[in-house]
Amino acid sequence: MEEFISYLFIGLGNGAVYAMLGLGLVVIYRSTGLLNFAQGEMAMFATFIVWTLADSGLPLWLAMFGGMFGGFVIGVVVHQVVVRPVGDPHQKPLAVVIVTIGMFLGFNALAKLIWGADDKTLLNLFGRSGIDIFGTEVAWQKLGALAVLAIEAVIFWMLFQRTKIGLAMRAVASNPESSALCGIPVTRVLMFGWGLATAIGAVAGTFTAPITAVSSNLMQLTLIYAFAAITLGGFDSFVGAIVGGLLVGVLSDVLPRYVDFFEKMPLAPAFILILVVLLVRPEGIFGQRKVSRV
């Protein structure tokens, strides 16, 4: 039982990170309508910025904010230079997939080129100590990830429900043409969405990095977990990303410990989840059902 609780909290902590990356994916899906396969690599790139700042002596918290700012700029540039010219993702899915795959390869290689192939270490944001819960030691880092996710959720809720830019983002998501006619600067709103998504990726990266190391492959598995999270929760739902992320985190950490079949393939539960949800209920738990006209 104690063992289970310890795995549970590790799963929740990791799940919070998947949820963070998932929130970014949802922002992009809602605004631009595409699944950004380069999201993980963009987050990895932003995490390298965090590492560079932390390595130059900045406290990790400040370095993370610096990385978020860097990520924001990257997101804006990527949207303007690459994503906008491609066009509607649902009309030309192949073009969008190829372009995001191209960015995937590009960011991965660029990180190796700038920071070299050696792994870098990033410390825990919440230190190495833990707290006793039901007789098991739970790391502050995992609880910290959950807390940061909660803060992000509140900020997102405030942003989308209580601010003008949030209203504009919701309007653009629901109908870009009408929004443009209402005088909403659609392009600027989309730019902001991409920036926001990449900035939050920097936070996810900062939490992933201490588990492995900062390398160009940092976020590749996390990306698949995050996709599983938003598939389960619904591609266009923020609540879905959070609930989905935590569920995927727990499943992927607990199952491989108890089921021999999953022992060396922790990704398998997430994969099965993606497949089953897309087959049975493509809109996920909280997502909106898509209705298309012929």
Binding site: L35, F37, V97, Q220, I224, A228, F261, K264, A268, L278
Partner: peptide, 30 residues
């Protein structure tokens, strides 16, 4: 067969997951 229901971007997502999972499957059945 499942690809009949899963199309476009979503098929790309599933196949991306397959590509990432495959080395783990090889590891599991080493």
């Amino acid at each position: 067969l499942p690809a009949l229901r899963i199309k476009g971007l979503y098929l790309a997502l599933v196949t991306l997951a397959v590509a990432t999972l495959f080395p783990q499957i090889l590891e599991q059945f080493s």
